[in-house]
């Protein structure tokens, strides 16, 4: 075989590969038994937790879920901004968030439409939007994760003010950047609860004493598990994940004593997109997610630690009985988020 023949064969094979790849990208293989009804769900809930819910919904209703997931690394600039960019021609049907701030932002950006789900009838009113643009249900709380090899129980922190305590060196305690994700929501809640001046002073002191400020709540958890930090502020799902994997850590709910402010409880929120391409399927999905049975399944899977209703499954990684939640209004917290974020950008990014 001479070189010209080989080049011709090679070029032919290359063209064939190009054609096949092009076809596969454009028309990926779809199993024949896929139902025709679909619902497009954009979710910031971890894929590991949300995927089983989608599968159960598909099995129960025959409606296929096409999901788009967010990741922590993109600093909440992912799905929410995508939804805003797609506002004039929506491609999503449902937004399911692991917190409430971004959902209220979408309501204000006219991305959402009202829907009152019958499944939400037994959800307490503080979880519901007054205009039915979104519905909250069980969620997570802000907690300390403590490395038990580095701290003895009498050294465990009790309050978020322990982040400023001289008992702990600044570089042995950590939080995530308070401009992003649930830490941003927590920061806005503190601004709302404590007032701007006190909250600003709190975060300025955190910055000044060089508390380790890292890329996300999961990084806080990993650094505590590694023993690089003695304790850090994170979400219950992150902390419980470490406990379930057998890491030498303990979970402490901060500010639970008499006269203390309590901790922030962050509910999941689900909302219908205005102009959704599949509105009926979207409503069916929202009804399914808000069902008490689904909330129970999510407690069981480890996504929800603080259920909104009395569900049979109990959170195994921590004692949630009588958790004192911060007495704040979600709407107020949301309203404060932009100003808080701008303040915190000045304090922490420098």
């Amino acid at each position: 075989m001479n070189r010209n023949t080989r080049v011709t064969i090679f070029a032919g094979l290359l063209i064939l590969v190009l054609l096949v790849t092009g076809l596969l990208v454009t028309f990926p293989a779809v199993p024949a038994d896929i139902p025709k009804k679909t619902v497009v769900v954009y979710t910031s809930v971890d894929q590991i937790y949300s995927e089983p819910v989608f599968h159960d919904f598909e099995n129960e209703t025959g409606i296929r879920v096409l999901a788009v997931y967010d990741v922590e690394a993109t600093k909440t600039t992912g799905l929410v901004n995508r939804l805003i960019a797609e506002k004039n021609r929506p491609r999503a049907d449902v937004f399911w968030s692991g917190e409430f701030g971004q959902t209220i932002l979408l309501k204000n950006e006219s991305v959402l439409t009202a829907y009152s789900s019958p499944s939400a009838a037994d959800i307490p009113p503080q979880f519901l939007d007054e205009d039915d643009y979104w519905t909250g249900f069980g969620g997570r709380a802000r907690v300390f994760i403590v490395n038990t090899d580095r701290l003895t129980p009498d050294q465990y922190p009790e309050s978020i003010y322990d982040l400023l305590s001289a008992r702990y060196a600044g570089n042995t305690v950590g939080i995530a950047y308070p401009m992003f994700g649930t830490t941003a929501t927590h920061a806005a809640a503190l601004y709302s609860y404590l007032g701007t001046d006190e909250a600003r002073g709190f975060f300025t002191n955190i910055s000044n004493r060089e508390v380790r400020v890292v890329d996300g709540n999961s990084v806080v958890r990993d650094l505590v598990v590694d023993g690089q930090l003695a304790f850090g502020l994170t979400d219950t799902d992150d902390a419980c994940g470490a406990v379930e994997k057998g890491a030498h850590v303990a979970i402490i709910v901060p500010d639970q004593g008499e006269g203390r402010m309590g901790t922030l409880v962050i509910p999941n929120t689900v909302a219908l997109i205005a102009g959704a391409p599949h509105p009926d399927e979207a409503k069916a999905f929202i009804d399914y997610v808000l069902d008490k049975k689904t909330e129970d399944a999510m407690v069981n899977s480890g996504w929800i630690q603080i259920p909104s209703r009395d569900v049979p499954t109990k959170t195994a990684c921590m004692n949630i009985t009588g958790i004192k939640a911060m007495n704040i209004s979600y709407q107020e917290v949301y309203t404060g988020i932009p100003a808080t974020q701008k303040d915190l950008i000045e304090i922490f990014i420098r």
Binding site: T74, K75, T76, T77, V80, N81, I84, A85, L105, E109, Y177, M179, F180, A184, I337, P338, Q341, K342, I345, I349
Partner: peptide, 14 residues
């Protein structure tokens, strides 16, 4: 680069 993302996150405006 973090500042850009922080501002993006705070303003929600591309």
């Amino acid at each position: 680069a973090l500042e850009i993302f922080a501002q993006f996150s705070a303003s929600g405006s591309s």
